[in-house]
Simulated assay, not measured.
Amino acid sequence: MDQDGMRRRRMMDRAILAAALLTALLVALVFDIVVKEEEGNTAGLMIEMNEALGLALLIVFGLLVYGVRRLRDQRRELEARLQAETEAKRALQLALLDPLTGVANRRHFQDTFTAASDGRIGTNAVFMLDMDGFKAINDTYGHAAGDEVLKVVALRLQAAVGRHNLVSRLGGDEFAVLVFNIGGESDAERLKQRMRYEAEQPIPIGRAAHSIGVAIGLSLFPQEGADAAAILARADEALYRDKRMRQAGLSRRGATAPEVTDEACSEPG
């Protein structure tokens, strides 16, 4: 308990003690009134009754004042606690989430990926994504349009992999996705095509419909290794291979969304 809390506790104890003493005094006065009534001392009885009434009013008033102050203190404590919780939540969001898209930021991704790569449970996949054509949208339509494109892409990626997997924006138009307990390489490839398909759908903003391309590289772990740096290096290499293939016109885009098995997006554990 902090010093303010201890001070309030001592004040409350003192108020309770004072109320107890006043109550005891009132009881004594009432007893005295009863005795004098039996003795027939009317004048003394009236004086004692007035004193008792005044003391009773004083006690009630004091307890009322104390109760009002206590309620006020409790309200201030509650407001301070709510404010502290709000600030802590805001600080956590700033520390872990990308302020533009609302998905995880680079720090959150790195911490989660490092922890996952140290484990030996199931088959996990990391996907590195880079957008083609995003700079042209920024240059032609402005950064506001580019920001909206990033938000839509982030939402589509999260919907494609499910809320139990991690989508993060590393910066600019670069994203990374962690998928836990994926079925295997074939499921990872299907999920990769699904993410590509969803992200490349036209994005209507205002009167324009923007189209982007998405290059994706993936790496499975721990089957392909448990060293975090090596896993990311393989995913980056796969990303650049995919970009070169797309630039050379060798990558294929399906006309419909590819099917993904339930295992490809299963919940962790």
Rank of each mutant, 00 (worst) to 15 (best):
H143S: 00
F113D: 04
R156A: 12
T140F: 04
V153T: 12
P99Y: 08
V149Y: 03
G122Y: 05
L150Q: 01
Y141N: 03
D111H: 12
Q158Y: 00
R120M: 09
P99V: 10
F127G: 11
T112N: 10
G122K: 08
N124E: 01
L96D: 15
R106N: 06
D139G: 07
K151G: 14
R120T: 15
R107K: 14
T101W: 02
T112W: 05
F109C: 03
G133V: 14
G122V: 09
D139Q: 07
A104V: 07
T140C: 01
T112Y: 03
S117G: 10
E148M: 13
E148Y: 04
F134M: 05
G142R: 11
R106W: 05
L96I: 07
Q93N: 15
V152K: 09
H143Q: 03
L150V: 10
L150A: 09
G119W: 06
T101S: 10
L150Y: 01
L150I: 08
G119S: 15
D130R: 01
A125I: 14
G142V: 13
F134L: 07
E148L: 15
A154C: 08
L94T: 01
F127Q: 06
F134S: 08
T114C: 06
Q158A: 05
T140V: 13
Q93I: 07
L155R: 10
I121M: 09
H143Y: 14
T123H: 02
R107V: 13
N105G: 05
D98V: 04
D147R: 08
V152S: 13
Y141L: 07
V152I: 13
D118Q: 13
R156P: 03
P99F: 05
M128F: 14
T114F: 02
V103E: 05
Q158P: 00
D118W: 02
I137G: 03
V152W: 03
A95V: 11
T114E: 10
L155P: 00
K151R: 14
A145P: 06
L94H: 01
A125Q: 01
T123R: 01
D132I: 09
